[in-house]
Design a binder for these strands. Structure first.
Length: 875
RNA sequence: GGAGGCGUAGCUCAGCUGGUCAGAGCGCCUGCUUCACACGCAGGAGGUCAACGGUUCGAGCCCGUUCGCGUCCACCA
């Protein structure tokens, strides 16, 4: 039965095999007909042609820990997997590919042919990311894998679009939007990243048209937009300009006349107090223009080049035009001054290009009515953010949300189901493609060329993946989902939108808890990014250290919502931990003769058995509770400490004394029992190695992945026995400590005399002292030996230990050391006495706390008395 | 401008609702080929928990102020 295992655990030869076992067993599958209580997570769908990065690795690990725990706890778990078509990201990739390989653009192919290319690309690379998710152990129900552009999701998207349109919550309109000149598409507000950039503040004279020679000076950071100016605004209360409101100015370089208007928007104290108004290229100006009914002049094209409204600047790139215009202003005597000015510039979150605010005809979601419900469900506590502070992040955003621009001038994505009649101009939004104009019967119909924002479909993810808009059993069983696990960086993009979508279309929240984690940074604390080249590839780490080590490294020491640094040192430490567990298991197996894992009867348990079993109970309670509270870092730490410290360093060492004796089988059974429970507690964190070890231990259940989660057994709480063992441990530590200080090698055994008032504690401890503290013998005495002067001594609360080793002991030093320890013990006693004589403390503090302090006092007194006796014996 | 986060051993970080909370890993020092493991064992050094003030019987933990570091949102042309 005993079986020899290699000394070093090899994840490479294990993980794929174990994963296949799980797949074959069907353990990942969720059953909507199950009577069990559901527990559901939908995966944040990675980009279909993306590559797994550390952020994914963390996100996946956290989800898998929750899912595996709940699965073992008897829930019907569904972890819904899938991928996102990632409109801009994917289209950019394919365009780059054909540009590089064929020197062509998407226009060379045309819409249909280009889309075929993208689909081919998706087919080619789309499975990579899924393979990678499997590598880190994700226990998703792969049979249900979805894609945001598959038939079902597309149907859901269309249903949502049409129904929102019918409710008046989607509209088309000419508004100012963010435009990326590189991606040549509109973006939503959330897709713009603002960054501080150095720039200039140009002060420019706009002369009055009355030929008086007077002028107003405006200040701008974007002089080229002057081509689109249709007014200059001042604050109505600004005394300096009261008399010029209503007058007319000549727009430099354009010879166009524009009015001076008064508007509250202008800040008197900023710049010159005069603001050029460019309705088509600034959101604030757009508003001002609406209030004053100003004309709109668009001066940029889709590539951010000056268009036909820009006169001689036509065709210039925006920055080229800026230079030319500044030069011409200077030449014309219009430029007053140029001063450096740092300002925030919006950039495209996908390509980093500076975005231009421009007016454009786009589709929008009317957010106000949707936001209302989305706020209520969070305020009512139906949806809870973990950690709680992100609730505020969410509500602040939702309270101030603008209408959502959802149309994108791309080809890859869900085509907007809006159809325009070429003859009568009738616009029809419909669930089925329109072939005939419902108004005039014309068959000359054009579908809107634009596609929807990628996030429009991901917003529906929790229910579109379950078959909505059909009424499916899956929805019935698993919606709303239990927890959503994601990083704080996509709360606005995704979490917020799922919430209002769920409320609107399902009439119910999409999830009960939003578990937010931080970013994985590099060893120096920087964001991992392609441009910095500081990203660490999770697959390489898995290859080198194993998925378990990576998972444990990612989750150890983290706390919800906080960023974490990734270091290979940490992975190495966790690889070592895996190996430690592996070798502990080897030890258990090498000594195995018992045929099953049944615990011995309580009366057959040794004190150390009772100690480890009591401690295991505590561990089970703590781990279970901390997972429940999403404190996964704490839970992982508790298991780590227990395995390494309590189980390996102490219990296994204790057990060695019994193996091979008549009691050996009892020891084995306790070893196995505890190990098995540890494997279960650790399984969600380190699924591969725990499953591998479990398979070679005697056990009743099949696979560990579906084994029952441990429960603390009150019948196995033995506080007295635990205290007894801890007293022995303290004694062993004290003796080891003294020996180490005196540099006594383990090979030199010493007699140990334990002077104690509680001899029962040490009656059976000789073998432990012999093995673990190099004791030749352990003698129990009531008082200090007569020749104590020649001995090394060590004092604990329960005993004073004497070791005859006169050659090594310097009596004076020994006395000085004991004296120092005595002072410490006395101050401890005084501290505790003071505390306990404080009536306020005794009356107000909880009884358990007071009792703990009393125990501390007792131990301090005992230690003090032991030290006093030792000192007396030495003098 | 607004919001929230962080500042704990040389380094990276835990420390949950205030009472063994002064911890872990790595690094460092001293021993050890002890029959599971040198990806190891035993022992050790090292922190006035950013500063100051307050609440409390009791504060890294709660409140306030200050200093330092990064984050998100908004955005003044």
């Amino acid at each position: 039965m005993a079986k020899e295992l290699p000394k070093i655990y090899d994840p490479k030869s294990t993980e794929d095999r174990i994963y296949q076992t799980w797949l074959d067993s069907g353990s990942f599958r969720a059953d909507e007909n199950s009577p069990k209580e559901p527990f559901t997570i939908v995966i944040p769908p990675p980009n279909v042609t993306g590559k797994l990065h550390m952020g994914h690795a963390l996100d996946e690990t956290l989800q898998d820990i929750l899912i595996r725990t709940k699965r073992m706890q008897g829930y019907e778990t569904l972890w819904m997997p899938g991928t996102d078509h990632a409109g801009i990201a994917t289209q950019i990739k394919v365009e780059a590919e054909i540009r590089e390989k064929e020197g062509k653009t998407r226009y060379d192919y045309g819409r249909e042919e280009f889309l075929k290319k993208v689909w081919a690309w998706k087919e080619l690379y789309g499975s990579n990311i899924i393979t990678q998710l499997k590598k880190i152990g994700s226990s998703c129900d792969w049979d249900r894998e979805r894609f945001t552009m598959d038939e079902g999701c597309s149907k859901a998207v269309r249903e949502v679009f049409v129904s929102l349109y019918e409710k008046g919550l989607i509209y088309k309109g000419e508004k100012i939007i963010n435009w990326c000149p590189s991606c040549t598409t509109a973006l939503s507000d959330a897709e713009v990243v603002y960054e501080d950039q150095p720039g200039f503040f140009w002060h420019i004279r706009y002369p009055f048209a009355d030929g008086s020679g007077r002028y107003l000076t405006i200040a701008t950071t974007r002089p080229e937009t002057l081509l689109g100016d249709t007014a200059v605004a001042v604050n109505p209360d600004d005394e300096r300009y009261k008399d010029v409101v209503g007058k007319t100015l000549i727009l430099p370089l354009c010879d166009r006349e524009i009015p001076v208007i008064a508007d509250e928007y202008v800040d008197k104290d900023f710049g010159t107090g005069c603001v050029k108004i460019t309705p088509c290229h600034d959101p604030n100006d757009f508003e001002v223009a609406a209030r004053h009914d100003l004309p709109h002049i668009l001066i940029l094209d889709g590539k951010a080049k000056i268009n036909e409204n820009g006169g001689k600047y036509r065709g210039m790139d925006r920055y080229e035009a800026r230079k030319a215009i500044v030069r011409d202003l200077e030449a014309g005597g219009y430029l007053v001054k140029t001063e450096p000015h740092a300002h925030n510039v919006g950039t495209c979150y996908r390509c980093g290009t500076t975005v231009e605010p421009i007016t454009s005809d786009q589709w929008f979601v009317r957010m106000a009515p949707l936001a209302e419900k989305a706020l209520k469900v969070v305020r009512d506590g139906e949806i809870r953010f973990v950690p709680e502070r992100f609730t505020k992040t969410y509500t602040n955003w939702m309270e101030n949300v603008h209408d959502w621009c959802i149309s994108r001038q791309l080809w890859w994505g869900h085509r907007i189901p809006a159809f325009t009649c070429g003859d009568c101009g009738e616009l029809t939004v419909a669930r089925e493609d329109v072939k005939v104009c419902p108004r005039c019967g014309s068959t000359h119909i054009d579908q809107d060329p634009d596609v929807l924002d990628t996030w429009f479909s991901s917003a529906l993810w929790p229910f579109e993946t379950m078959g909505w808009p059909e009424k499916t059993k899956t929805l019935e069983k698993f919606y709303p989902t239990s927890v959503l696990v994601t990083g704080y960086d996509i709360i606005f993009f995704w979490v917020a939108r799922m919430i209002f979508s769920g409320m609107e279309h399902m009439g119910e929240k999409p999830f009960g808890t939003v578990f937010i984690h931080g970013l994985v940074r590099d060893a120096l604390g920087r964001k991992m990014s392609k441009s910095l080249g500081n990203g660490v590839d999770p697959l390489e780490i898995i290859d080198q250290y194993g998925a378990d080590a990576l998972r444990f490294a990612l989750v150890s020491g983290i706390s919800p919502g906080n960023d974490t640094r990734f270091t290979t040192e940490k992975v190495e430490a966790m690889r070592n931990f895996a190996n430690k567990l592996w070798n502990a298991s080897r030890y258990v197996q090498m000594n195995l003769t018992a045929e099953d894992d049944a615990l011995p009867a309580p009366e057959a348990l040794a004190a150390e058995d009772k100690w480890i079993l009591s401690s295991l109970n505590t561990l089970i309670r703590e781990v279970t509770e901390n997972i429940e509270r999403y404190e996964l870092g704490v839970a992982a730490g508790k298991i780590y400490d227990f395995v390494w410290d309590m189980y390996c360093d102490w219990f296994i060492e204790f057990s060695k004394l019994r193996l091979g004796t008549p009691e050996g089988e009892n020891a084995q059974r306790v070893l196995i029992h505890v190990l098995e429970n540890l494997l279960k507690l650790l399984h969600p964190f380190m699924p591969f190695i725990t499953e591998e070890i479990y398979s070679s231990l005697p056990h009743e259940e099949g696979l560990l992945i579906t084994a029952a989660w441990p429960k603390a057994d009150p019948a196995l709480d033995f506080p007295e026995a635990a205290e007894e063992t801890e007293a022995v441990m303290a004694g062993i530590r004290a003796v080891r400590n003294r020996r180490a200080e005196l540099n006594v090698p383990p090979s030199r055994k010493a007699h140990v005399i334990a002077v104690t008032a509680r001899p029962a504690l040490f009656r059976n401890a000789e073998k432990f002292f012999a093995r673990m503290a190099s004791a030749a013998s352990l003698e129990i005495a009531g008082e200090a030996p007569a020749d104590a002067q020649k001995m090394a001594s060590a004092v604990t609360a329960e005993a004073a230990f004497y070791m005859p080793m006169s050659d090594l002991v310097d009596l004076e030093k020994e006395k000085a050391r004991l004296q120092k320890e005595l002072e410490k013990a006395e101050s401890d006693v005084a501290f505790e006495e003071k505390k306990l004589s404080n009536r306020n403390f005794v009356e107000k503090a909880p009884a358990a706390v007071v009792e703990a302090e009393r125990e501390k006092l007792r131990r301090a007194e005992a230690t003090r008395d032991g030290l006093l006796a030792s000192l007396k014996a030495l003098s």
